[in-house]
Design a protein around this nucleic acid. Structure first.
Length: 304
DNA sequence: GCCCAGGCCATTT
DNA sequence: AAATGGCATGGG
């Protein structure tokens, strides 16, 4: 089916590192899995063609109802954010399955995005349910491979560490297995996280092995839609230091957390993803860009 | 061979 | 509170 979209860029949205299950086809369309649906997605100007899943599922996943302009209007209007917003024009945060998001990011520690995608694909093939082919093009294309849903919690909980290591998870295998077992046993209830305030939600997720502040924030941002979560990874840490604290010494991690909480506003996580995608694809910005002084209090200091 | 990758954790200052 | 090293695996 077709959707008329404004301020929407499918490529940025699917390739910015928030989701790991989309593959770009030679014709520029994308093939991926949402829940138990194989989905084909393609954009031509303001027309988005999506096939394979019910409209409601797609609407929720792609967050069509989110007002992107209103969100971007809350970003600090400094030079770096303006460039990031311009370069990532139309990029949107998705609303993904919480468990899939959490598990995927448990696998993400010190791995490049291409490798995370590979690990997730391995997990789906080994422990996920096969899903029927999706839209019309899937039925026509008999050569397309079988797709698999992301494995349910209990499927991972019943695996062995050796099986997970066979999916190339490395030292992350032990963490994912223990996390799945805690969730399966009801020791940590993912269903209860959405009702918690942000600090408590993060604290709850961090009870799981392999989940620290960064991975908890990724899961909360991409899986629970909590836009106050601000994943502070190596790229963002570099970006904050070089763009907002240029030339300053002894900028502690604590200081960076304090800064971003006061500076980026109520949709800080959204802003973070724009900055992340921008600097990762324009690394020269981190070398030559002039820094901004972070001495002035951020616009949002009063709101946090 | 080197270094680094959307980190976390235990240990040491 | 901040630094350090270990943890698997693959890419440049």
């Amino acid at each position: 089916m077709e959707f008329v979209v404004r301020d929407f860029d499918l490529r940025h949205t699917l390739e910015c590192g928030q989701a790991f299950r989309w593959q770009r086809q030679p014709d520029g369309a994308y093939r991926g899995v949402i829940g138990r649906h194989v989905v084909r997605a393609a954009q031509r100007n303001s027309t988005l063609s999506l096939d394979g899943a019910p409209a409601g599922t797609l609407r929720d996943y792609f967050q069509f109802d989110a007002n992107l302009a209103a969100i971007i209007a809350t970003f600090p209007a400094d030079e770096h954010m303006r460039r990031a917003v311009a370069w990532c024009h139309g990029m949107r945060l998705l609303r993904q399955d919480p468990w899939e998001t959490l598990a995927s990011f448990i696998c993400s520690a010190t791995k490049q995005i291409v490798q995370i995608r590979q690990m997730v694909a391995n997990l789906c093939r080994a422990f996920g349910e096969p899903v029927p082919p999706g839209g019309k093009s899937e039925i026509r294309n008999s050569k397309s491979e079988t797709e698999f849903a992301f494995p349910v919690v209990v499927a991972v909980a019943r695996a062995t560490e050796a099986q997970l290591r066979a999916c190339k998870l490395g030292f992350r295998a032990k963490n994912l297995l223990a996390a799945a077992r805690m969730i399966d046993a009801g020791e940590v209830r993912l269903g209860a996280v959405g009702a918690m305030d942000y600090p408590r939600a993060a604290e709850e997720l961090m009870r799981l092995p392999g989940v620290g502040p960064k991975i908890a924030d990724c899961a909360l941002l991409f899986g629970w839609g909590r836009q106050e979560a601000f994943p502070l990874d190596v790229w963002i840490e570099r970006a904050l230091r070089r763009l907002y604290f240029r030339g300053k010494r002894r900028v502690t991690r604590r200081r960076l957390v304090e800064f971003h909480r006061g500076y980026f506003g109520p949709h800080a996580g959204y802003a973070q993803q724009y900055l992340f995608h921008y600097v990762r694809n324009n690394p020269q910005e981190l070398e030559t860009a002039g820094g901004l002084s972070a001495r002035r209090p951020g616009v949002w200091r009063n709101s946090v």
